[in-house]
Amino acid sequence: MEHLETDELPLSAVIDRIETVTTSPSLTREILDTAEKRGLIEREDGRIQVRRGGSFVRFDQQVVARDGEFTCQRCGAGLSTGHFIVFETGELGPFGSACIRKVVGRDD
């Protein structure tokens, strides 16, 4: 969550991004609660205000594409090219070309 590109999002958009790593409602709530306790976000009236502690994902530097047989982590579609977000702690993905843009906040 600290890598979101925008300063404010509707709760539904934040949940959509969280669902790239889990679809468990209890874990989603735990992620939001933890982010709020750590001071990364503020919640109010169905909107999430992001407090800048980290940096947003730089699409041209942190997203890599690899050819192969993959399944999109977001929508479940079969892929011949998978897009991965590279963080210091590891990679997140694969995602299709449309889903990666949604996950990093380029298309809402």
Results as ranks from 00 to 15, higher is better:
S55H: 03
T6H: 13
G53M: 13
G39D: 04
G76P: 10
T23W: 08
L11N: 02
C72E: 02
R47A: 04
C75T: 08
F59T: 00
D33F: 13
R47F: 10
P10A: 07
R106H: 06
E44C: 09
R101C: 12
E42P: 05
R51C: 10
V50N: 04
E19G: 05
A35H: 02
G96A: 09
D60I: 14
F95S: 02
T20Q: 04
G54H: 07
H83S: 04
E88T: 07
G76E: 07
T34S: 13
F95D: 04
G93H: 00
D16G: 10
V103F: 14
E91G: 08
R51I: 13
D7W: 14
M1T: 13
T20S: 06
R101L: 04
E8H: 07
A35E: 03
E36K: 07
G90P: 14
L27D: 06
P25C: 11
D7K: 15
A65Q: 08
T89F: 00
E36N: 15
E44Y: 10
L40D: 07
G93Q: 00
D7F: 15
V50F: 11
T22E: 06
D16L: 10
D67M: 15
V14F: 00
R43S: 08
S26C: 07
I18W: 06
L40H: 12
S26A: 05
S24K: 05
G68E: 11
I15C: 05
L4P: 05
S80M: 15
A35S: 12
G78Y: 05
T71W: 09
G82M: 04
I85N: 01
R101M: 10
G93V: 01
R43M: 00
F95C: 00
I41S: 07
R52V: 11
E5H: 11
R101D: 08
T89V: 11
P94K: 06
